[in-house]
C-alpha cells in the first residue's frame, strides 16, 4: 500500500462569485522514499494541495468538498483537529517558499528547533537543545554549536532555509512537503539546497513532495511528476518519460519554456518560448470542458464541449487530453 493516497480530492474556495473548485477531482499516490513533484503555473492549485494534505486550508474560505486523503490508511479528511496537530510536524512536515519570513524573528533557531522536538517527542530541554545542534550540523550549517544561538536575522537566506529544513526534519517525518523551497534563493544556493534534500532523503527515507515551477529542479530531484492546470491534473507519470515525450500540450509548453544557454551569443538571439494566454479565472474552474482549450494549438470542438478523460499509457503515464494519443 502506498504511504499516501489521494482519491478524487475536490477542494472548494468560497469567493464573491460563489464557490470555485480550486482542486477538481485529483487522485495520486506517493510511495515511501519517493519524490513526487507538482508542476504548474501560479494559481493552478499546487500549494492548495499541499495545504489540504496538512489540514491547513484557509479557515472559513477553503474546504474539502469530497474525496479522501489516506495517510498510512488513515483518512485525514475525517481526522480531528487534535489528531491533525499530532501528525503535522511529526509525520508530515512542510517547508515554505520564503525562508526570510518563515522563521519566528524573536527566538533563536536552536530554540525553535528544540521547541518542535519538545512538543512532539517530549524531550527534556537539554536533550532537545543537543538534538537541535545535531540537526543544524546535519543540514551543513558550519559551527552548529555557535549558530544554534543565532536569531534568524543573523543568517543568510540559504542558511535560513537550511534551518527550516532542520526544523521540518526534526521529528523524522514520513513525508516532507517542500513548497517552492528555492524560489527565493540564488541559483548557486538552490543547487546546494537540492543536494541537501537529496542526501537527507537517502539518509532518512523520507518521501518528498516538491512543489515548484522549475522544470530543472523536477528533472534533478523527482522520480514522478504531476502537471497541474487550473485545479486539474493535466499529466502524471515518470519524470524522464514525460520530459522525453509529453502527452499533454500544456506539459509540452512548460518543457519548451525552459530557456537554454548558448555558448555563442549573436545579434539574433533565439526567441524565448511562451505558452500564450493566462490561466482561466477561478469562476471558470469547474466547467465541463478542457480548461486549457483557449491556449492550446491543437484545440478542436470536442475540447470545448466536454472535459477530457484520463488516458493511460505504458509506464504509468496518464494524460488528461482528448488528443493525447496523437501527441
Amino acid at each position: 500500500m502506498a504511504l499516501l493516497e489521494v482519491e478524487n480530492l475536490r477542494i472548494e474556495l468560497s469567493t464573491r462569485d460563489g464557490t470555485a473548485p480550486v482542486i477538481d477531482d485529483l487522485s495520486f499516490h506517493l510511495d515511501a522514499g519517493e519524490t513526487l513533484s507538482f508542476v504548474g503555473e501560479s494559481g493552478c492549485g499546487k500549494s492548495m494541495t499541499a495545504l489540504a494534505l496538512m489540514g491547513l486550508l484557509p479557515e472559513r474560505i477553503g474546504r474539502i468538498a469530497s474525496g479522501a486523503i489516506r495517510f498510512d490508511g488513515e483518512d485525514l479528511t475525517k481526522a480531528s483537529p487534535a489528531r491533525l496537530r499530532e501528525i503535522r510536524g511529526n509525520d508530515i512536515s512542510m517547508i515554505f517558499q520564503e525562508p526570510m519570513t518563515s522563521l519566528n524573528p524573536v527566538f533563536t533557531i536552536g530554540e525553535q528547533i528544540a521547541e518542535v522536538l519538545r512538543a512532539h517527542q517530549g524531550l527534556s530541554r537539554q536533550a532537545a537543545w543537543d538534538h537541535a545542534v545535531e540537526l543544524i550540523d546535519a543540514v551543513r550549517i558550519p559551527n552548529p554549536k555557535g549558530r544554534a544561538g543565532d536569531y534568524p536575522f543573523q543568517m543568510s537566506g540559504g542558511q535560513r532555509q537550511r534551518a527550516m529544513i532542520a526544523m521540518a526534519l526534526a521529528c523524522k517525518p514520513k513525508i516532507l512537503i517542500a513548497d517552492e523551497p528555492t524560489t527565493a534563493l540564488d541559483v548557486t544556493v538552490q543547487a546546494q539546497i537540492f543536494d541537501l534534500l537529496r542526501d537527507l532523503r537517502a539518509q532518512t527515507g523520507t518521501s518528498i513532495i516538491l512543489i515548484t515551477h522549475d522544470m530543472g529542479a523536477v528533472a534533478e530531484m523527482a522520480e514522478r511528476m504531476i502537471v497541474m492546470y487550473a485545479g486539474r491534473k493535466a499529466e502524471l507519470g515518470p519524470v524522464a518519460q514525460i520530459i522525453n515525450h509529453a502527452r499533454h500540450p500544456y506539459t509540452q509548453g512548460l518543457i519548451s519554456c525552459v530557456p537554454h544557454l548558448h555558448d555563442v551569443l549573436t545579434e539574433d538571439r533565439p526567441e524565448l518560448f511562451e505558452v500564450p494566454g493566462i490561466v482561466p479565472s477561478l469562476r471558470d474552474f469547474g466547467r465541463d470542458e478542457c480548461l486549457f482549450a483557449s491556449r492550446c494549438a491543437h484545440v478542436t470542438d470536442q475540447c470545448r464541449s466536454a472535459r477530457p478523460p484520463e488516458k493511460s499509457f505504458e509506464g504509468g503515464q496518464i494524460a488528461d487530453c482528448w488528443h493525447a494519443e496523437a501527441m
Binding site: F96, S102, V116, A119
Partner: peptide, 25 residues
C-alpha cells in the same frame, strides 16, 4: 505572517500559537 503558518505546520496548538508565537512578536 509566514512563520505563524510554519508554526501551524509543525503542529503547534492554538493557545501556544497565540501566547508563545504571536504575542512575543
Amino acid at each position: 505572517l509566514e512563520f505563524v503558518m510554519a508554526s501551524r505546520a509543525s503542529g503547534v496548538p492554538n493557545a501556544k500559537l497565540m501566547f508563545g508565537v504571536i504575542l512575543p512578536n
